[in-house]
Simulated assay, not measured.
Amino acid sequence: MSALSSTPFDGTHNGGTSDNGSNDTLFESIAQGLQTQGYAITQAALPLTLTAGLLLRVSQLPEYQFAVAGTGRQQEHQLNGFVRRDKIRWLNDEHPAEQAWLDFMGDLQRYMNRRLFLGLFSYECHFAHYQPGDFYRKHMDAFRGQSNRVLTTVLYLNPDWETQDGGELVMYRDDDHNEELLRLVPRFGTLVTFLSEEFPHEVLPARRDRYSIAGWFRLNASTNHRADPPR
Rank of each mutant, 00 (worst) to 15 (best):
Q164N: 12
Y172N: 06
E162N: 13
Q164T: 11
E179N: 09
E168F: 04
Q164H: 13
F135Q: 06
D174L: 03
E168D: 12
N158G: 04
M171L: 15
T152N: 10
Y172L: 09
D175H: 10
P159W: 00
D165W: 06
N158P: 07
R183N: 03
S147H: 12
Y156S: 05
R149K: 11
R137P: 01
Y130R: 02
Q164A: 13
D174E: 05
D176R: 15
R183L: 01
D175K: 13
L151E: 00
L151D: 01
D174F: 07
V170P: 01
K138N: 04
V150D: 04
A142T: 08
R173E: 14
H129M: 14
R183W: 06
G133A: 07
D174Q: 05
G133F: 07
G145N: 11
Q164R: 12
N158M: 08
L169Y: 03
L155M: 11
P186L: 05
Y172K: 07
Q131F: 07
H177V: 13
P159D: 11
M140F: 13
L169P: 01
H129P: 01
V154C: 00
Y172C: 05
N158L: 05
T153M: 01
M171R: 08
L181M: 14
Q131H: 13
T153C: 10
V170Y: 01
W161S: 01
G145K: 08
L155I: 11
M140I: 05
P159Y: 04
E180Y: 01
R144C: 03
N178C: 03
P186N: 07
W161D: 00
S147P: 01
Q131W: 06
Q146I: 03
R144L: 13
M140G: 04
Y156C: 01
R187D: 06
P132C: 02
R183F: 01
T152I: 10
Q131E: 15
H177Y: 13
R183C: 09
L182T: 14
E180N: 08
G167E: 07
V170K: 02
W161A: 00
P159G: 02
F135E: 00
E180H: 08
M171D: 03
P159T: 11
D176N: 13
N178G: 11
D160Q: 15
N178K: 11
V185N: 14
E168C: 11
P159L: 08
E168V: 02
M171Q: 10
